[in-house]
Simulated scan of single mutants.
Amino acid sequence: METIKTNNEIITNQISLGKAALISGLGLLLMALTVPFAEFYIFPKLISDDPTETVNNILSNKMLFTTSIFLHFITLLCDIVVAWALYIFLKPVMKSFSLLTAWFRLIYTAMYLVALTNLIKILNLVGISAKAEHGELADSVMFYFSSFQLEWSFGLVIFGIYLLLLGYLVYKSSYVPNVFGILLLIAGFGYLTHTLGTFFIPDWDLDFLFFTFFGELIFMVWLLVKGRKLN
Rank of each mutant, 00 (worst) to 15 (best):
3 T>E: 06
3 T>W: 11
7 N>Y: 08
10 I>C: 02
11 I>N: 10
11 I>R: 14
16 S>Q: 04
17 L>P: 04
18 G>E: 13
20 A>W: 11
21 A>F: 12
25 G>S: 03
26 L>E: 03
27 G>V: 07
30 L>E: 04
32 A>Y: 06
33 L>F: 12
34 T>M: 11
34 T>E: 02
35 V>Y: 11
36 P>L: 15
38 A>D: 02
39 E>P: 00
42 I>W: 14
45 K>Y: 03
52 T>H: 09
52 T>V: 07
52 T>K: 13
56 N>Q: 15
56 N>C: 13
56 N>V: 13
59 L>W: 12
63 M>T: 01
63 M>G: 03
64 L>S: 05
66 T>V: 08
69 I>R: 14
72 H>C: 06
73 F>G: 03
73 F>P: 01
74 I>Q: 10
76 L>G: 07
79 D>P: 00
79 D>K: 08
82 V>N: 07
82 V>Q: 07
82 V>P: 02
88 I>P: 03
90 L>V: 00
92 P>S: 09
92 P>W: 09
93 V>A: 12
95 K>H: 03
96 S>G: 04
97 F>D: 01
97 F>N: 01
98 S>D: 03
98 S>Q: 04
98 S>W: 05
99 L>A: 11
100 L>A: 15
106 L>G: 02
107 I>R: 09
108 Y>P: 04
109 T>Y: 14
111 M>K: 08
111 M>Y: 12
112 Y>I: 04
113 L>N: 07
114 V>N: 11
114 V>T: 13
114 V>W: 15
118 N>L: 13
119 L>H: 01
122 I>Q: 00
122 I>H: 00
123 L>E: 12
124 N>E: 12
125 L>P: 03
125 L>M: 13
126 V>K: 14
126 V>Y: 14
127 G>D: 12
128 I>N: 10
131 K>I: 09
132 A>D: 09
132 A>L: 15
133 E>P: 02
134 H>M: 09
134 H>Y: 06
137 L>E: 05
140 S>F: 10
141 V>F: 11
144 Y>Q: 09
144 Y>M: 10
146 S>I: 10
149 Q>L: 14
150 L>I: 05
150 L>Q: 08
151 E>A: 07
152 W>Y: 13
152 W>I: 05
152 W>H: 11
155 G>F: 13
159 F>C: 01
159 F>W: 02
160 G>Q: 10
161 I>M: 15
162 Y>F: 04
162 Y>V: 00
166 L>R: 00
166 L>H: 00
166 L>A: 01
167 G>R: 10
167 G>L: 09
169 L>G: 00
169 L>C: 03
170 V>S: 04
170 V>Y: 06
170 V>C: 05
171 Y>E: 00
175 Y>K: 03
176 V>H: 06
181 G>V: 01
182 I>A: 11
183 L>T: 00
183 L>M: 01
185 L>M: 13
189 F>H: 01
195 T>M: 13
197 G>H: 08
199 F>M: 06
199 F>Y: 07
199 F>A: 04
201 I>P: 05
203 D>S: 12
206 L>K: 10
206 L>D: 04
208 F>M: 05
209 L>D: 02
210 F>V: 06
210 F>A: 11
214 F>V: 03
214 F>L: 09
219 F>Y: 14
221 V>F: 09
221 V>K: 12
223 L>F: 06
227 G>S: 09
230 L>Y: 06
230 L>G: 01
231 N>K: 14
231 N>W: 11
